[in-house]
């Protein structure tokens, strides 16, 4: 295994407090979104409880002024950390617009991806484009490339597109970071029935890709490991795989019933320490936070959730004309005719 080493220099307390605040927002919003679904505000939601450290920590290693994030459908924490408006993000779960309402170009976060592994090749292509840009500009080695970071899970690692993406990334030496959140479960199927060999990171060796295995519940370690992977890719040295070992502490989705495939006792045993508790206790012990600070951060997260909920509840259906408008940049005549007929036959304009 071509292991990429990474520095363990401690992050400043102020940075850890910032990450803890973000993670608290993410945890509370995630928990609330499940409640919203029960209350009928959202038709469905894909919880990410337990993956806050992996998602917030990985984005903290990026430069969002030039890097690009390629999420799946379980990256609310990453999207929040990347600066995506959460009302616009939740629009996909509100069934307002598939992919979300946020501007993928402005935010540098591709739309919410429902095809497992579907984005990995895009991250390779986009990253290759950065190499071509640098070559056309006559950039000198070591390069200073914008980096594509694509999220995938243990389940996605079974998809053929992940193999093709890693192989293409290896062949073209693209500045792509494959960030694997190994959360133990692909809906109901555990990692041992999903990942032959037991490790996605270990597969990197077969593609000549540098790999890092990291505790995905330790936000500091995630930041350090992802920074090393990003620096590697940015310099032009090629792609990297970060496998963050974490645990999906909730159901796959709001229509899932984990009781059918794992017991509460197993969850307690396999889930280990909650990343939120670990970070909070550490910051309290270090004196970086007081109990009052923690309470204040929680209240801010609750106020934030209320604002997002109001945004989501205010979202009405999109104008029907949009389903015609966005299919093409240049709308073909037959579609224009269908749109005109729809307008004539319906009361919605």
């Amino acid at each position: 295994m071509n292991t990429l080493s990474y520095g363990r220099a401690a992050l400043p307390d102020a940075e850890l407090v910032r990450l803890f605040s973000q993670m608290t927002q993410v945890r509370h919003l995630d928990t609330s979104a499940i409640a919203w679904q029960r209350q009928g505000i959202l038709p469905g939601y894909a919880p990410m409880r337990g993956q806050e450290a992996a998602q917030v920590g990985s984005v903290a290693a990026l430069d969002m002024s030039r890097d690009f994030v390629f999420p799946t459908y379980r990256e609310m924490g990453a999207a929040l950390a990347a600066g995506v408006d959460m009302g616009e993000y939740m629009a996909t779960h509100k069934a307002t617009w598939n992919g979300g309402m946020y501007d993928a170009r402005e935010t540098r976060v591709t739309p919410i991806q429902t095809v497992i592994g579907g984005s990995a090749l895009h991250a390779v292509g986009w990253a290759h484009g950065q190499r071509l840009d640098a070559a056309a500009a006559g950039a000198d080695e070591p390069l200073d490339l914008p980096v594509a970071l694509v999220y995938l899970g243990d389940g996605a690692s079974s998809q053929g597109d992940i193999h093709e993406a890693m192989n293409f990334a290896g062949v073209f030496e693209t500045p792509t970071v494959f960030f694997v959140q190994n959360n133990g479960w692909a809906i109901s199927v555990p990692t041992e029935r999903q990942v032959a060999g037991g490790s996605v990171a270990a597969r990197g060796a077969g593609y000549g890709i540098a790999s890092i295995h990291v505790d995905g519940n330790d936000v500091e370690a995630v930041v350090q490991a992802t920074r090393a992977a990003v620096a590697h890719a940015r310099s032009g040295a090629g792609p990297a795989v970060v496998e963050a070992m974490t645990y999906r502490r909730g159901p796959h989705s709001t229509s899932d019933d984990p009781g059918r495939y794992r017991s509460l006792a197993e969850e307690r045993r396999d889930g280990g320490v909650d990343p939120m508790d670990a970070l909070r206790d550490r910051l309290l012990e270090a004196g970086a936070l007081t109990a009052e600070d923690v309470a204040a951060i929680q209240s801010e997260a609750e106020a934030f959730e209320e604002r997002v909920r109001a945004d989501v509840q205010a979202q009405g259906p999109r104008p029907g004309a949009e389903m015609f408008e966005y299919v093409y940049q240049e709308m073909p005549a037959p579609l224009r005719e269908q749109a005109a007929a729809w307008r004539e036959e319906s009361d919605h304009v």
């Binding site: 690009f68 290759h128 484009g129």
Partner: peptide, 12 residues
């Protein structure tokens, strides 16, 4: 891979 890479290049 060819088509997925093309999609990413188009994004770039």
């Amino acid at each position: 891979g060819i088509l997925g890479m093309s999609a990413g290049l188009a994004m770039a």
